[in-house]
Design a protein around this nucleic acid. Structure first.
Length: 806
DNA sequence: ATCTTTCTAGTTTTT
DNA sequence: CTAGAAAGAT
């Protein structure tokens, strides 16, 4: 969500007055009064319309994949405004992601005409949480200018606490404590509320104490973490009826997106707020609940009618996205889940007999899988399908690498979605730490982060002295440093470095009121030597990091000043997918939720990987069901074509493991699935090919056993795999390379075909730069393919279009 | 204080 | 196997 300048933490009185001229409400009212009244309802189906028009009382909209969920939500808001049931400032609309919030704002703007200024309470759970918490910070033991810690800061803080307790960090890593505390916060539990049994989860009951210590430290630092934004806000509302009453008066309507993803705190928070006007409308899909592992409770949506008595449940099952085959496959699969409210997607569109069925194909190993899918994509390309319309959705991110490697060699442009977030990047956090320290001298975590970045010769020993002094004198680290450099505590270089550091910080702080914040930011990065540090770095990432720093400064422009920028940065900083150009998207199934593509490839449908072994081990039945929902999400991303793949062998933790097809394959409806003979048809290779033959055998085998429960078949396949594999040649034993690779010559041909060859632009000895591998020297040239000795990544064969000459 | 070696763990991810 | 972190060496 973009937080524009005018949205300060403190709420202006005008938000609660009537519609401002030209504001969203005024326009909406105008729209309603105009002859084309209710135009926003046009083209909606009866269920959608009902979901929009049922304004009074609790409503649950069960919106299946591709049924126009966002449209309903936005139209409902437009409807509320147009019928003058509430002012924009009286509507609370919550989403999970900034992206969803932004999209919603945009679409409401479209419906109502113009930008949405007057909806101060449309945002993510967290951004709304912060907003409330800042207004009532003192009730939570904080000042309203509290800092929001990122995960890195949290971890460092916890590490310190663990050390202070004299606990063995190896046996009880800070990460584990962090996830325990996170879990408790998700469940709405404060230290004293943790059940006895759970308190033992970390260091035999010390978990509670550490949690309490951690919270106490946060208060001292005037900081809170992401979990607190909701938990503390909930506590404030619960403990202060007057505050709650104020919000009850304020919110006439509450709307919630992706309700199936809410956790306990979010649920409690919503329920508390909804006790006011009682007009709460939650939109979600129990079949797309895939975040149980981070605290989401599918139960929230399953229990809805009990939680909100008299709730009206509206099902949206009319799908506007996918072909009949795809819908049938997805529906049949998800029907195997028990814990669900039950919906069946259907389409009105007359099915084209040409629509391809969902295809299932197999490969010998994951390498072949990547190769075959790559070729399939080239085939699509030749048919005129744009690469932007193609996606590869994997279960686990390690699967991506093989595709990347393959596509680099092939010269197929790709884009990985959902890497590290922009604000999580090292360089961004470093830069922010500088800014934080300049504007908040007491920010010890920021101090620690940058005191020796870039290297100033200030190591652990120095820091320990500062810490000790700071704790004894009860002053922040900056102040401790200032006092200590006046003494003889530090000598020589250390003293000079410390003095320079503190003086720089002070100097920058002095300029804060007078200088433009973006200029100051640039100055800080320049004078601190931070930019220089990356300019001198020869690794592949360095140029990107410098680019990100520039982007950071650019994004500051939108804010009035440094303080405003910092207040919001941790919540709103989105990564900028700046790379233009057609490219295949590679991402995890999780990050694909909410997206759609013409053609979707779903590789890796093997037992152990998908469903993931860990989900099975730790989540049992419900774990399996969540995996199945993930499969459902994957299939329903496809509009026209969906191709599922599995490999007989996959390298896991370095060694080759044979694998058996996922049980989910058995749960697909035979009538809508076609077993692809082979994904890749290398001229001349077919059944004679040893691994081609094995593929075919295997495919036949599982297709003929459709009625067998998955696990049973799995057992059989496992047994068979060990013994004589009936013409399948058996699986490769761990460590042993499976039957040869695809012939190299063919590989060469395919590459040559797919890439436009110009005259050789590179010659041996050229210095080149590659986005992924960094700098290197060309050691061989064959056509458009180069062999490069990379400085860091070693020898690689790449297509020339992927490198640039230096 | 920094460079090098050794060890360990290894789904999914937003805010 | 391999990246990242912690301990050990210089």
């Amino acid at each position: 969500m973009q937080l524009p300048k005018n949205q300060s933490a403190a709420m202006s009185a005008s938000e609660f007055q009537g519609p401002r001229p030209g504001g969203i409400a005024a326009r909406a009212m105008g729209a309603a009064a105009a002859p084309a009244a209710g135009g926003y309802l046009a083209g909606m189906n009866p269920e959608q319309r009902e979901a929009v028009e049922t304004l009074d009382g609790p409503v649950l909209v069960l919106a299946g994949a591709g049924t126009g969920k966002t449209r309903v939500l936005t139209t409902r808001i437009a409807h509320i405004l147009a019928t003058r049931r509430a002012f924009p400032s009286e509507i609370l609309a919550v989403t999970f992601t900034n992206k969803a919030a932004r999209e919603m704002k945009e679409r409401i703007g479209h419906l109502v005409g113009g930008a949405v200024e007057g909806m101060p309470w449309l945002g993510t759970f967290h951004s709304i949480g912060v907003k409330m918490l800042r207004r009532h910070a003192e009730l939570a033991g904080l000042r309203s200018d509290f800092t929001i810690l990122d995960t890195d800061d949290q971890l460092r803080l916890m590490k310190q606490l663990i050390q202070a307790e004299g606990i063995d960090e190896k046996r009880w890593p800070a990460r584990q404590l962090a996830s325990a505390i996170d879990g408790w916060k998700n469940k709405g539990l404060r230290p004293h509320e943790i059940p006895e049994g759970e308190a033992r989860a970390y260091v035999n009951g010390q978990g509670r104490k550490l949690y309490a210590d951690y919270q106490a430290r946060l208060k001292v630092l005037n900081a809170c973490d992401f979990g607190d934004l909701l938990l503390e806000t909930l506590a404030v509302l619960r403990d202060h009826p007057d505050v709650l009453a104020e919000y009850h008066r304020r919110f006439k309507f509450i709307l919630v997106d992706e309700y199936q993803d809410t956790n306990v705190v979010q649920y409690l928070w919503l329920r508390l707020l909804a006790q006011g006007a009682r007009n709460i409308c939650c939109v979600g899909d129990d079949d797309q609940s895939i975040y149980g592992w981070r605290g989401a409770e599918v139960d929230n949506i399953l229990r809805y009618e009990r939680d909100f008595p008299g709730a009206k449940v509206i099902r949206l099952e009319r799908n506007y996205r996918s072909t009949g085959h795809i819908l049938a496959a997805a529906s049949h699969l998800i029907a195997h889940n028990e814990a669900r409210l039950g919906k069946t997607l259907f389409t009105d569109a007359a099915g084209d007999p040409e629509d391809p069925k969902v295809s299932v194909a197999s490969s010998w190993d994951s390498e072949e899988e990547a190769r075959a899918i790559g070729e399939e994509i080239e085939r699509c390309q030749r048919r005129g399908v744009g690469l932007d319309d193609v996606a590869i959705l994997v279960r686990a991110s390690f699967q991506m690498r093989e595709f990347e490697d393959r596509f680099i060699t092939m010269g197929l442009p790709y884009r990985v979605i959902g890497g590290p977030r922009f604000y999580e990047r090292l360089e961004i956090r470093d830069a922010l730490a500088y800014f934080r320290l300049v504007s908040q001298p007491a920010d010890d975590l920021a101090f620690e982060r940058i005191v020796n970045t870039p290297r100033r010769g200030l190591g652990d020993a120095t820091l320990r002295v500062l810490h000790e002094f700071g704790r004894r004198e009860r002053v922040p680290l900056t102040e401790a440093t200032r006092q200590l450099i006046a003494t003889e505590e530090f000598k020589g270089r250390t003293r000079v470095a410390l003095r320079d550091f503190v003086e720089s910080i002070d100097r920058w702080r002095d300029q804060l009121p007078t200088m433009k914040h973006t200029d100051l930011a640039e100055l800080i990065l320049e004078e601190s030597g931070y930019t220089e540090m990356w300019q001198n770095d020869r690794s592949a990432e360095a140029p990107g990091r410098l680019e990100n720093l520039k982007e950071l400064i650019r994004s500051m422009e939108e804010f009035d000043g440094m303080a405003g920028f910092l207040e919001h940065i941790s919540l709103v900083m989105d990564r900028d997918s700046g790379d233009a150009g057609e490219a295949v998207s590679i991402m995890t199934l999780h990050s694909a939720k909410g997206l759609e593509f013409d053609t979707v490839f779903l590789p890796g449908w093997e037992e152990g990987l998908f469903p993931h072994q860990r989900a099975l081990d730790e989540g049992g039945r419900s774990g399996l069901e969540e995996e199945r929902r993930l499969a459902y999400v994957g299939i329903t991303r496809a509009k026209k074509r969906c191709a599922i793949w599995f490999a007989s062998n996959r390298r896991i933790h370095g060694s080759w493991q044979s694998s058996i097809p996922s049980r989910f394959l058995d749960e697909l409806p035979e009538a809508h699935v076609e077993i692809a003979e082979t994904g890749s048809n290398y001229g001349g290779y077919g059944r004679q090919n040893p691994y081609g033959a094995s593929r075919f055998d295997q495919v036949e085998r599982f297709s003929s056993n459709y009625e067998t429960p998955g696990w049973q078949r799995a057992q059989k396949a496992r047994a068979a795999a060990g013994g004589a594999g009936g013409g399948r040649g058996g699986f490769a034993s761990p460590g042993q390379a499976p039957y040869g690779r695809a012939p190299r010559t063919i590989e060469g041909e395919l590459v040559a075909k797919s890439v436009t060859t110009g005259e050789a632009r590179f010659s041996i000895g050229d210095r080149v730069f590659h986005l992924k591998f960094g700098g290197g020297t060309v050691s061989a040239v064959e056509g458009n393919k180069l062999t490069v000795e990379f400085d860091k990544a070693g020898q690689k064969r790449v297509v020339e279009s992927f490198v640039e000459k230096k």
